[in-house]
Computed example of a mutant assay.
Amino acid sequence: MDDTVKQDYKMNYSFYPGQSEEVVVFIHGIPTNHHLWDPIIPYLEGKYSVLTVDLIGYGYSERAPYPDLTLPKQAEYIINLLDELRIPKAHFVGHDLGGGIVQILSVFYPQRVKSMVVADGVCFANWPLPKVVSIRYPTAEEFQPSPLFIERMLREGLYYPQVLKPKVLTDLLLPFSGPNGPRDLQQASLALNHHQTEDIVPYLPNITCPTTLLWGQHDRYLPPYWGLLLHQHVPNSKFKILPNSGHYSMLDNPSLFAKELLIHLESATNY
């Protein structure tokens, strides 16, 4: 890993202590933030301790130039946060980019990973999406990085677009809605390169922690094929397709997502 990474970016996070010492860390992707997990947290509260984070450059975390927003560096920032909070080991749940970060954590920091869940995650060379690349150098109005672009991306990625109630939409759009929002979103896009996950493919068979792969049946951004391929590379992993769900399965069908997550956590805790 890169030792020159800046260590002191401020990461926004929320910690919900539970009755158990088991800690579950939730990691979002682009273009969302920690609010992505709001529908899931109530299912875990009281039983597990929960940590939700805003990746550096996203949500209410500190902004940074794109070389410092790569997935390997995001993984380092999360390890730094765990050190700060004195959390030696945790269960990790990652969506989209977060799914790639969880894979990197499992490969490079296996001693910190009790288990992992990849939900509709980036892997191999299936990313960044053309839609995400388009905002780097927009050639038309529809590709301008803006809250409207984010809203369209969310709606197109959902099986039930109507779940984007005003509060949900506000929570997911607000961090990129300021005057620097377009530039910040561009920086986030510029940081993304499929080699960040493709380069760890040879190491995926070495992952030994309990692993569950959850994929929305109707994910039009990262189709379930990729979950199956990841399942074939990670030993003893479980692959489950979530019906009536798109790319944002935790928003489309939170009760089902939470049910599968709790099954995973109970099994992994007793592993």
Rank of each mutant, 00 (worst) to 15 (best):
V117D: 00
Q103G: 01
K89N: 07
L230N: 05
A188G: 14
V201I: 15
Q162A: 11
N270C: 04
K259I: 02
L97I: 15
A268D: 09
P182M: 10
E62P: 00
W37R: 03
Y137Q: 12
P166R: 08
P179V: 06
V107T: 11
K167C: 10
D8A: 13
Y58D: 09
D199T: 12
N236V: 07
V234P: 00
I27N: 01
T212G: 02
A90W: 07
D184A: 15
K6T: 13
Q187E: 15
D184G: 13
P175F: 04
Q103F: 09
E84Y: 13
N206Y: 12
Y16Q: 08
V102M: 06
Q144F: 03
W127H: 13
L230H: 03
G181T: 12
G94P: 03
P254D: 08
D219G: 02
N12V: 04
Y203G: 01
A125N: 11
S189E: 09
Y9T: 04
V163N: 10
N12S: 09
L192N: 11
D219W: 05
H195F: 11
D199E: 15
Q74F: 01
P65T: 05
S106C: 12
L97Q: 08
L185F: 06
M116I: 14
V50S: 05
K259G: 08
H28I: 05
L192V: 15
W37T: 00
E22W: 00
P182G: 12
L51T: 03
W127N: 08
L169P: 14
L97S: 09
S189D: 10
P72A: 07
L228C: 07
A90Q: 02
Q7C: 07
P145W: 06
P138N: 11
A125D: 12
T211R: 01
F143G: 07
E260K: 10
M1Q: 11
A75V: 10
F143P: 10
V234S: 04
E22D: 15
E142D: 14
P147F: 06
P254R: 02
E84C: 08
A75R: 05
